[in-house]
Design a protein around this nucleic acid. Structure first.
Length: 208
DNA sequence: GGAATGATGTACT
DNA sequence: GTACATCATTCCG
């Protein structure tokens, strides 16, 4: 995985990210690791009304307009943090939101971070995974290619079956954004939790 | 199982 | 003031 990987269309990046690893080396020797099983693409160039970048750069979304391959971390609904990877060309404002992972290592520490909520509730949502992985606002703008918090493509040949779920209608856009998830992990997120998905009764990481 | 709601920070009108 | 790229809790069946 290199910077060119992220300099493509966010939908291609999103599809290729499924099955990749999210790694957070909190301190030397303490390593949290998981497999990405659900992401969501946000297009750039003002073409995605649902994107934080749609109305141009602000203090919060500045990282989205920086070079590809860096994290964009922001506070959602006042309580939770969400983490994206910046994609496309610099200044384009494209990104992929990391929505769910399957925990691989450091599960006990994640469980503590999550206040004891484990099982499917451990990392099955944008706010949950940032809490479990100890992702903070300080990671905003940092590289996703190297550093304590980073993404890694597995060398193996385990290529998960990918499903794309076009969110057929945001109130503002026709068919954006796009959610991608590993079909092999239908249980990682609960059924529709966010209002938008509920409103349009679109399946939210439901099994085949 | 599914639906409604409060908590809470920030950007923006 | 309003709208959110959410989550946990509390209802109801």
């Amino acid at each position: 995985m290199n910077r060119v990987f992220f300099e493509r269309c966010p939908r291609q990046v999103a599809a290729d990210l499924i099955g990749c690893r999210l790694i957070h080396e909190v301190t030397p020797g303490v390593r949290l690791e998981g497999t990405l099983v659900e992401v969501e693409a946000y297009l750039g160039d003002g073409s995605d009304p649902g994107s934080h970048a749609h109305n141009g750069p602000t203090g919060r979304n500045a990282a989205m307009f920086g070079p590809a391959g860096r994290f964009y971390v922001y506070r959602s609904m006042g309580i939770h943090l969400c983490v994206n990877v910046v994609c496309g060309a610099e200044g384009e404002g494209a990104a992929v939101l990391l929505r769910a992972v399957e925990a691989l290592s450091g599960r006990e520490r994640m469980l503590r971070n999550r206040g004891g909520r484990g099982g499917r509730e451990l990392t099955s949502g944008p706010g949950k995974l940032t809490q479990a992985f100890e992702i903070e606002l300080a990671h905003d703008g940092q590289s996703a290619l190297r550093g304590p918090l980073r993404l890694l493509c597995p060398a193996g040949d385990e290529v998960p079956r990918i499903q794309a779920e076009p969110s057929i209608s945001l109130s503002k856009a026709a068919e954006l954004p796009y959610r991608y998830f590993a079909a092999d992990h239908p249980d990682v997120t609960r059924s529709p939790l966010n209002r938008r998905a509920r409103r349009h009764s679109s399946p939210y990481l439901r099994g085949p």
